[in-house]
Simulated scan of single mutants.
Amino acid sequence: MKVLIVEDTKTITNLLQVYLMGWGLEFFDAPDGKAGLGKARELKPDLIISDVQMPEMDGFALCAAVRADRQLHDTPFMLLTSLKDAASREKGKLVGASAFLNKPVSVDDLRSKVRDMLKLPATNR
């Protein structure tokens, strides 16, 4: 299964990959929403994990673009953000995010959400 991580901080991209190792997932990454949308259209990933605050195109706009794309609209989409306000959560729902996690990300929450979205086995080790 292909997972696209759209994140402008390479350290966080690498951490997410480490946290999700063990299920045999194939990881791809993009540094911003604009590049992420292009990569999503090319790869047709099984899951997109995106930061919210990024240059070029933020995660909200990326999620909305994915939902508007006929070939991608059903792709599970997880937003990660340091924004903790209710308006940001509501905006995530409005653009069609499947899940919304706050940074710093809880490893257990991340694994649980990814496992549910991709219908993976309970353990990844």
Rank of each mutant, 00 (worst) to 15 (best):
residue 24 G to Q: 07
residue 112 S to G: 05
residue 37 L to N: 11
residue 44 K to G: 15
residue 4 L to V: 08
residue 10 K to R: 12
residue 109 D to A: 15
residue 62 L to V: 02
residue 104 P to F: 03
residue 7 E to C: 03
residue 4 L to S: 11
residue 124 N to G: 12
residue 72 L to C: 10
residue 27 F to Q: 05
residue 29 D to P: 04
residue 51 D to S: 01
residue 122 A to G: 13
residue 125 R to F: 12
residue 4 L to N: 04
residue 120 L to C: 09
residue 44 K to I: 12
residue 103 K to F: 09
residue 76 P to H: 00
residue 95 V to H: 04
residue 6 V to Q: 04
residue 107 V to T: 13
residue 89 R to L: 13
residue 18 V to K: 04
residue 39 K to H: 13
residue 35 A to P: 13
residue 114 V to W: 08
residue 116 D to Y: 14
residue 5 I to Y: 02
residue 104 P to V: 05
residue 35 A to R: 10
residue 31 P to S: 09
residue 105 V to M: 08
residue 74 D to C: 07
residue 14 N to S: 08
residue 1 M to N: 02
residue 97 A to N: 00
residue 117 M to H: 12
residue 118 L to E: 06
residue 112 S to D: 08
residue 102 N to C: 10
residue 69 D to V: 12
residue 56 E to D: 14
residue 82 S to D: 07
residue 20 L to D: 09
residue 85 D to A: 07
residue 35 A to W: 08
residue 9 T to G: 07
residue 53 Q to W: 05
residue 108 D to T: 11
residue 48 I to V: 15
residue 91 K to D: 01
residue 116 D to I: 07
residue 25 L to K: 06
residue 59 G to W: 00
residue 85 D to H: 05
residue 60 F to R: 00
residue 91 K to W: 03
residue 57 M to C: 05
residue 109 D to Q: 14
residue 48 I to Y: 06
residue 9 T to H: 13
residue 106 S to T: 11
residue 90 E to F: 06
residue 98 S to A: 10
residue 107 V to N: 00
residue 17 Q to P: 00
residue 118 L to W: 03
residue 41 R to K: 15
